[in-house]
Design a protein around this nucleic acid. Structure first.
Length: 104
DNA sequence: CGTATGACGAGCC
DNA sequence: AGGCTCGCCATAC
């Protein structure tokens, strides 16, 4: 599956996140085989195109917050998650306890 | 080929 | 409580 690039593994892992669920960068990295590659996940998603089939919006940081700046697409990410049934708290964060993906 | 970077994470001040 | 720094590792230039 991996097309020679670790990004392919990361993208495949992100695609495995079910609708209505979220995963942290660190968790995706861990499942993808990069225990300390949380940053790589963010960098990989950064290279995605607009028409990608990867549900990049389901990936958030360890605090359950959106890392992207709102004007850079973070606002869009929150709306996409809310559209899938993910509830955001009053502080703008997601309850990882309730929406975190349990893994493959 | 070497340097700098980044949609993170956890720790320290 | 909030903000800053260091560490990690592959990719980009």
């Amino acid at each position: 599956m991996a097309a020679g690039s670790l990004y392919a593994v990361i993208f495949d892992t992100v695609r495995a996140i079910p609708k209505g669920r979220v995963a942290t960068y660190g968790q995706v990295a861990l499942i993808a085989g990069l225990p300390r590659g949380a940053r790589l996940v963010g960098y990989a998603l950064h290279t995605l195109s607009e028409g990608t089939d990867v549900p990049w919006h389901r990936v958030i940081n360890a605090r359950g917050r959106i890392s992207l700046h709102p004007q850079f697409g973070g606002l869009l990410q929150q709306e996409l998650l809310e559209a899938e049934g993910v509830a955001f708290g009053p502080d703008g964060g997601v309850s990882l306890e309730g929406f975190r993906w349990q893994g493959p």
